[in-house]
């Protein structure tokens, strides 16, 4: 049984996955970030509902971002703690790739652009088709960005999708969904089957943006 944790947006969600299928899922999604308070009770609740203890988990999967720094801190620290304490592997799932696959599976589109809201007119985006996903990038979206894609076989997916709806043709599908632990099921299982794990000691989430610090040069005297 794999425990999946998704905390990259204000949707805080967990899912228990067995053989690639969700057996139990729980989420809290409000305007505020409730992850610090709710994530662990949700995990405990899921285990209880599934009538298992943490000892019976075989792996922990965490959605690795990009996304909210606070969400990532809480989700990744929680996943590391479980992996470390239970001596079970840690799996990192690329959040945008996961969203893209979700978009392709739930629409007839051939290409998905996964988008997580990064405030203002920025999104974290990745272009996903059935074979590949481009590396995530932080984009200031404008109309020209979409010119490269066939509008009638395109889906925009994620919580950053709706703010681009005015920039694309009416034939493009806009799937305004939050990343969710239940979307991680198939990929988590695939990682498990292929034994694609990350090192619990040194793994870091995908912050995407390097944090640039301004150094003050002003003299006090």
């Amino acid at each position: 049984m794999i425990l999946c944790i998704e905390t990259t947006t204000q949707n805080c969600s967990v899912a228990l996955v067995d053989k690639g299928a969700v057996v139990f899922e729980e989420r809290r999604c409000t305007d505020q970030y409730v992850h610090a308070e709710q994530l662990h009770p949700l995990i405990a609740f899921c285990l209880e509902q599934a009538h298992i203890t943490a000892n019976e988990l075989t792996a922990v999967a965490v959605s690795s971002g990009p996304g909210s720094y606070t969400g990532l801190r809480i989700g990744v620290s929680a996943a590391k703690g479980l992996s470390f304490a239970l001596h079970i592997p840690l799996i990192a799932i690329d959040t945008l790739h996961m969203l893209g696959i979700y978009g392709l599976q739930h629409t007839p589109a051939q290409t998905a652009i996964a988008m997580i809201d990064a405030r203002r007119m920025e999104v974290y985006a990745s272009v996903v088709d059935s074979n590949s996903a481009t590396p995530a990038e932080a984009l200031v979206v404008d109309k020209s960005f979409f010119d490269a894609y066939d509008p009638s076989s395109l889906v925009l997916v994620g919580d950053g999708a709706s703010k681009c709806s005015g920039l694309v043709s009416a034939s493009t599908i806009v799937l305004d969904v939050m990343p969710d632990a239940s979307m991680m099921a198939a990929m988590a299982q695939e990682h498990w089957d292929k034994q694609r794990f990350v090192d619990v000691a040194y793994y870091e989430p995908h912050y995407l943006k390097d944090y640039i610090v301004g150094v003050s040069t002003k003299s006090i005297l």
């Binding site: 995990i43 405990a44 203890t53 943490a54 809480i74 929680a78 996943a79 304490a85």
Partner: peptide, 19 residues
């Protein structure tokens, strides 16, 4: 806050995992 989150979330997982 950001620093506290890491320790608290990690510690909670240990508590949950080890009961």
């Amino acid at each position: 806050m950001g620093s506290l989150h890491v320790g608290v979330s990690f510690a909670k997982s240990l508590s949950l995992a080890l009961q």
